[in-house]
Write a protein that binds this DNA or RNA. Sequence first.
RNA 1: GUCCCUUUCGUCUAGUGGUUAAGACACUGCUCUUUCACGGCAGUAACAUGAGUUCAAUUCUCAUAGGGGACACCA
Length: 477
Amino acid sequence: MKKIRTRIAPSPTGTPHIGTAYISLLNYYFARINNGKVILRIEDTDSKRSKSKFENKILELLHWLGIQWHEGPDIGGKFGPYRQSERNNLYNKYVEKLIKVGKVFKCYRTSEELEKLRKCKVDKTLKEKDLQLDYKELKFRKKHNWPYVIRLKVPNKGKCVFYDVLRGSITMNWDQIDSQVLIKSDGTPTYHLANVVDDYLMGITNVIRGEEWITSTPKHKLLYDYFGWKQPEFCHLPLLRNPDKSKLSKRKQNNSIEFYRKMGYLPQTIINYLGSLGGVKTTKWYRKNTNMKTKVDIKSISLGGPIFDLDKLSWLNGIYIRSMKNETLIQVMYEWAKDYIHKILPTIKPRIKILTDIIHLSEQVFYGLPKLKKEDFKVIALKKKLQIKVLKHLWLQLEYIEKWDKQNILYKVKQVSNQLQMKMKTIIAPIFIAINGRLISTSVINTIVILGKDITRIRIKQAIKLIGGITLKHENK
RNA sequence: GUCCCUUUCGUCUAGUGGUUAAGACACUGCUCUUUCACGGCAGUAACAUGAGUUCAAUUCUCAUAGGGGACACCA
């Protein structure tokens, strides 16, 4: 039997997400229980959004969770490079092949035209014939070197059947599948091309990925067929959901892995909880299995998208914490607090008279969510409505910051003050309560810097909710 | 809108052609404890609906409804 090879293929376009952890975990375990290998491949074909700082974070946090790989950009391997942006020459070579056999075509359409064309079609599916330009126009655009993309030729009729390990065969009509762009106008590949070529070249036997890929699998199958390659086994995992049942979104900040680390969840909690969302069959499993060596059967995963339940996660974390030896726990506590201690020290040092002052001065960086009540905001002279307004504006301002440092954050807070035409002194009070949990304490800007984006924003959100603001309109955009 | 996936307590999961449908989180009560928490005990609570197959369906089939996803020169 061929040796199992799976891949973890994150895209470095944002801070790593709990969904990434889930998919990575199952790839890791599937390889492990089958004595196979795991490949980590960075899918950075989107050059505009990919950032190396995100790649670093992804590697760091997967390591933190204890997920391991045998080949990857950080450790190398026989099938490298493991960053798609470093493999562009390869893809071109394979596109040449497709051009030779006539399975792709050049498309000179502009994005405005595409938009119009899609509007005209009920199913929004664009095929080769929909994209055709009349002869004159085509000649003109070619002559004047208009930018073009290379698209996949897709059958117009018939059915595409492919096999999913969890669901059996899935059938789709070819007329529903559009002529996917394989090479963008800048000459770089799209995900679909790079992914198939790399999975083939890297000898991936099992593609374990999220359910959102099911509908593009026919395109991938077509590529395998055109190249004459054997398909890997496809396994589409159900998507993790928010309590409102929507897909666990990258936009919702509190789903970043780092958020859970900062809040004080242990890596084994996250790993075991994620594992429990489907793959694990025993009932008394939580207490008995602190690692997932046993009883994982990927084929038994439940197909309803599970809701990521914070209550249960916290309960599990408690189980692990209480089962630790004191020395170990002290170590864990120190590791967790160390960063905060180092960062808060310069701020509190001028205020310390006796050592016992320390706790009171620095507690705001240690509680994940301050335990606030509605009444806590009533001490502020500012009207309720305006408090909410201030916090909502701050929420928005803090969403996009290039670098999370004092200067930028201060600038954003000043923006809020300008926007609302209110003095700093006025707007800062509700921010103090929301973030620091009280009015008299160290600089709130400083706290925000130390806490980082995830924790800061969840505190603001909590405050808005407490004061009585209903929703954050821009929360999920 | 079109297509695809999906459906067991509020949530995560077991399970079965004939079961008192199981466990865990959450919730409630009791207990332990100086309080709280932890622990222990107990309780509330589910097979989406309709039709078919069958002696029998939560389990098999089909339809309907709910939920989710995809429909980009993003992954």
